[in-house]
Amino acid sequence: MTTFTPVSALLGGLLIGTAASLLLWIDGRIAGVSGILGGLLPPTRGGAVWRALFLGGVVAGAALFYALHGHAPQARAGFPGTLLIVGGLLVGLGTGLARGCTSGHGVCGLARLSPRSLAATVTFLLVAIATTYAVRHIVQIAG
């Protein structure tokens, strides 16, 4: 169970929007994590450095926040490893096929008013809500 944290949620969202705006304004790139990561698998000539720097920045930014704020999320006790492995495979495969994830379609795509991104975002949000319901309330796996 988690509680509603409106201030940190809104500030965090504004920072994500700021980052997406900076990358588009300065470099002309879309801040979509799955696309930026996918472009490194394997690395393409010319595009590898900025991708690695952006992703390294994401990790460093989170590290900076934890260093100042104190606690990073711990692993969930008793959460099935199978769900993490299957979940990871599906997230990688799905975002690769759809060419975008929460950041690429959900933030940048919606901000560009892209119909494709709207279709993708509505789809993955509704499916994720239905899946969470099934896992928690039908199969009843806590997490």
């Binding site: 940190s8 949620a9 500030l11 965090g12 969202g13 504004l14 920072l15 994500i16 700021t18 980052a19 997406a20 900076l22 990358l23 300065i26 470099d27 790139r29 801040a31 900025w50 991708r51 720097l53 952006f54 992703l55 390294g56 920045g57 994401v58 990790v59 460093a60 930014g61 989170a62 590290a63 900076l64 926040f65 934890y66 704020h69 990073a72 950041s103």
Partner: peptide, 15 residues
């Protein structure tokens, strides 16, 4: 790109 990534990462962790 590094700077944008940093801001993005702070935002994700803060949120």
């Amino acid at each position: 790109a590094l700077g944008a990534g940093l801001v993005f990462g702070v935002g994700l962790a803060l949120a």
